[in-house]
Structure formats: C-alpha cells, structure tokens
Design a protein around this nucleic acid. Sequence first.
DNA 1: ACTTAGCACTTGGTTGGGTAGAGTGCTAAA
DNA 2: TTTAGCACTCTACCCAACCAAGTGCTAAGT
Lengths: 337, 337
Amino acid sequence: MSEPRKLEVLRAIVEDYVHSREPVGSKALVERHHLGVSSATIRNDMAALEEEGLITAPHTSSGRIPTDKGYRLFVDQLASVKPLSAAERRAISVLLDGPTDLDDVLERTVRTLAQLTNQVAVVQYPRTTAATVRHIEFVSLAAHQVLVVLILASGKVEQNVIDLGGAVDEDILAGLRRLFMASLNGLTVAQLPAAVVRIPLEVPVAEQAAAARLAQGLAILAHSAREDRIVMAGTANLARSNNDFPLSIGPVLDALEEQVVLLRLLEAMAQDSLGMAVVIGRENPHDSLAEASVVATSYVPGENAKLGVVGPTRMDYPNTMASVRAVAQYLSRILAG
Amino acid sequence: MSEPRKLEVLRAIVEDYVHSREPVGSKALVERHHLGVSSATIRNDMAALEEEGLITAPHTSSGRIPTDKGYRLFVDQLASVKPLSAAERRAISVLLDGPTDLDDVLERTVRTLAQLTNQVAVVQYPRTTAATVRHIEFVSLAAHQVLVVLILASGKVEQNVIDLGGAVDEDILAGLRRLFMASLNGLTVAQLPAAVVRIPLEVPVAEQAAAARLAQGLAILAHSAREDRIVMAGTANLARSNNDFPLSIGPVLDALEEQVVLLRLLEAMAQDSLGMAVVIGRENPHDSLAEASVVATSYVPGENAKLGVVGPTRMDYPNTMASVRAVAQYLSRILAG
DNA sequence: ACTTAGCACTTGGTTGGGTAGAGTGCTAAA
DNA sequence: TTTAGCACTCTACCCAACCAAGTGCTAAGT
C-alpha cells in the first residue's frame, strides 16, 4: 500500500465529493480518475484513510466523505493553487476599477467576491487603532449644536453632533479648533482619549465648559473609530448552495449577523506562508459555524484587516482560495494607489 | 347564510392558519372558535368564501388556507390593532434609548424590530434629496490629494478623496473653499450639481484646473448623498420561520440584497389612514417576493422615510403591524428630540 | 508483499399496495 | 337557513419487496 497513492485517493475523494455532494465509492473513483489500480485496492486504501480519521462513511456500506481533518490535510498538502481564469480576472478588474472612496470600494469588493465564489463574502474595514489624527473640524449647526468631525490619516471620517450647553461665539470655536488640532495632530486614535482630557485645562475659564464638551465628543469619536466593522454580501448564496441542507443555514446567518463573532474569528486566524488562512468546520470556536469553513487573508500586508468567504465545509477550496487571494491583491493595489 | 358570520369565519381561518401553519377544516374551526353553528354550516360559508376567491384548498378535500386576497380583506377590515404588551414596550424603550447618533439609532432600531417581530426588519435612511448644504471642507492630505467633505443640514456627512492633478497651495485651497461655500451654502443636494459647475469659471486661470476637480468631487458627493440606503437585520429569522418552506428563502434574500428593489417598493407603498402600508404576496411587483408580505410605515411624518418588516405572507399581521407602528413612533420621537 | 477477482452482506432509496384520518360536497330532513 | 348523515376524495403513513451501490473479507495471482 503506497503512501502517495493513499493521498491521491484522498484528493480524489475530496474533489469528487465537493463536485457531486454525494458520498463517493471505490468503483466510481477508479472510473473517474485513472488511477492504475482496481477498486479493491482503493477499498484497502480507503479503509486505511478511515482508520486515520481522514474520511468517514455516513452509513455502513455507503461511500466515504472527507472529515474536517481530511479537508485540512487536503488544503495543507494536496491543493494546488489554480490560477483564475482570464474571465474571472477581467470581472475583478472591471468591478473594482472606479472611484476609490473607501466605503464604495469595499462594497464593490465584497459583492465581487461573493459573486466569484458563490458564497458569503466578508470584508473587514481597515483597522484604525493605529491611524493618526489628520484633521479636526467643528461646524456650528444651531445655537448650541456643533458637528464634530474627526478625520484620520487612513481616510476614515467620523462625525457626531454634540450639544455645547450654551451659545459659543464662532471665533472662540475657531480658536478652540486650532488648539485641539495643535494638541492632537498626529496622535493615534488610541492615544487621543488620554490627550484630549487635558485640553480644557489650558483654556480661559469662560471657555472651559465648551472645551470639555468638545473633548468628550472627540473621545467618543475616537472610540467609535476604533470599532471594527465588516461588510458582507451573498447571504442568498448560502441558501442556494445549501438547499439540500437547509437546517444549518439558520445558525450561520445568526453568526454572520453577530459581527463580533466573525471579527474575533478573523482576528484569530493564523495565516500560512502564503498569507492564506483557512478554518474548517469544527476547528472553528463557534458552534454555529460547525458546518462552515472560512477562507480569509489580509489585504493590507502590514495591518491585519482581512477579507474572505464563509461557506459549507464541503467547498471548492482551491478555487475559493484563489479567488480570495486574487481579490485581496486587487484591493490592496487599489488602496495603495 | 349571514354575511357577518362569513367574515367571522374568514377571520378564524386566517388566525388559525397563521398560528398552526396547516390548512384549517370546518370541524376544527367550530371547536376552537365558539361560533354557534355546526360544521356543515361552516362548510357552506367556506364554499362561498372560496367562490369569492378569499380562501383556497391546496388539494381537494383538505382544509382551506387564505389567499392573498383573503389576507388583504383581513388586514383591511377584520384585524383589530392589538396594543403591545408592557414587556414589549419596555424592550423598545430600553433598546432605543441611548446615544442619538443617526447610524447608531437606526442600527438599534432595526435590530429591535427584527427581534420583536421575529422577521426581517428594514429601515430606510431619511431621504436627503431636500437636505441643504451646511458646510464644505477641503483637507489637504498629501501633495496632490484633498479630502472633500460635504456636510448637510440633516447631519449627514459625505466625504471622498480626490486628486487635484498638481500641487495646490494651502492658501489658495482655503480661498477656493470660501468661494465654494459662498456659492453653495443653503442649496439643496439636488441643486448642487448644476450650481457647482459654474464655479471654476469665476476663478483665476491658474486655479481653474484645481477648482474643476473640486467641483467634480462635490458633485459626486452630492450624488451619493442622494442615494437612498437601507439597513436590515434578522435575516436569520427568515431561515427559522420558513424551515418547512426552504425553497422560497433564496429569492427573498436575493431581493433583500438588491436594496434597490426594496427601496422602490417602500417608495411605492400606499399608506392607509393610520399611516400603515401592507403589501401582500403577489400584490408585490417583484416576483421574488411573491410569497412574502411587507408591512411598513413612515417614521417621519413629513418625509417618506420608511421602516418595516418583510416576512411570509402567512404572518401575524395584527401583531406585526402593532410592532412596526410602535417602533416607528419611538424612532420619530427620538429623532425629533 | 501487494494487488485483484469474487462473493456474501449491509443499507438506503424507491416502488406499490393497503389503510386511517381528515375533510369536502351533497342531499334530505328539521 | 341550518343541520345531520353519508359517500367520496385526498394525503400521509406504514410495510414489504426490491434494486443499486458499496463494503469487507478471503483466496488466488503476480
């Protein structure tokens, strides 16, 4: 019994099962893949693979399907990265070229990825904890109301309306703005809250109340700027691809709506040497994703903003990984440009 | 055969079917509802109702289920508006009290509504076509790059990074900003594009190229500010409530992701005297929602920003309508305050 | 030491018939 | 107009038989 052939059998099982969604038997295998041996030999190999926990039989005397462990070995050692077709690459570039507004680009990215993979696509917003303050603006709206705008070097803009508690002269507001800018310019979002509380102490008593409110407004903005967000698309694909397995889609939709779960998961995913991260079935910490796999990668090399797809464990890993990687590369190129 | 009793029978059928999800027969009806007549009489009434197209029998000699027309008559004439329970009202106020940042509030609103109705909830952003320009800001980022920020009276902030095509002095940029502000202040978003194109003609030749780029950037922002958006939550409820009818959820998810469909639908929905709008099954223009109903209402009396839920035609209309109305009232109170 | 042919055995899915239950429509009487 | 009764019609369910696919094992072949 040769080790290489055993792995070849595993690969064949994974590929056939992903394709047909039905347990695959020894006879069908030798027919579809021209392994030069008989079905009996394959049966022996299969018994060995089952022994190792890489495949399993849903019922006695039915074909085999890969286990999570089997998929794991497949993606780690057996999957060759298929390059995307020209049509696919064209689709990506067409869909992603255009205005470079962050929201816009991420929106189109997630749609493209969903369409490309026929699965649920998720894109995490670039993390802004390390982003520095680029600009601060106070805009008078009504007598007491001021719109506080915080612009970060990453291009992200946060704003909120606050109440000053009393009328404040335009000139004073402008002066305060200059003071805030001078004190905060270049700080990271993480540093801002600590720095901002000291500012009111430096202004004339008459302006302290207003300055304190502004400071608090900025602190809130800094806080919400640090919040991670994800956008997603393609939830309908989930319903389609799993129409024979409708039981499991509820939990998955749940997990997807609880963005925190997904964010933590993306955060924790370890990437291989090529930067791809794959979590398969029950490897996942969250039970509701027990029958789902996540394929993700960072799209900005330094930071760990990620993007990826969520689909059934029985997914076409090579193609999915190729799509995820390609989209990530396009996106990082666009954001860098 | 009395007309009032016939309607009573229809009401009973709708209520039982919504509750049990199974076709309801004459015998079961007389048992559950103490109508003072025999099952044979009910059968006669049912035959009449079927004649009128208000109910239908899935198969010969099975119970009856309401048709879209039957639901329509039910909501128009038979449904009494049940007040929410104290617990429900408490849930709403707890969930919706808090910061009044627009994004935040709408997000919490949609979650609350989804949880309350166990259906998919949608909330449309307030329309901004009529919003006027409150403030414009140009922020230098890199040598050629400027962040253009457009702030509307509604509190909405749109921003985008544009490339000026060449270096521009800070002072010149400030001057341009004042000019733009003077020309555009108070205009509506709808008027902005026409007004903005004339501005570059009024500046020195040396600044015209930059002014033109800025103008175009603003026009784009105005355009995207006019775009309507919706937020939604509770898609998992769809999977849960329809677990016996998994076929139809794919199309519905599709329609929900194509926000345009939903926006147009909300737009077109006619409201009754109480401000509630209900579209039932095939009354809906879009085929993918043929088995779904939409219950919506405006949450800002003047404008037509709407909020509502999407669910199976077989839904509990009275409770759903009560929830939608209550949430809308809370939301408008919060936004007004 | 592997591989292979052959065979007995297991099992899920499908088909057909038979039955029970729920429900209807109709007729005739109250 | 209502009601009781009855014949009729479905669907859902169960059961048996059967088929197809697949396995594990043994014994023979290389």
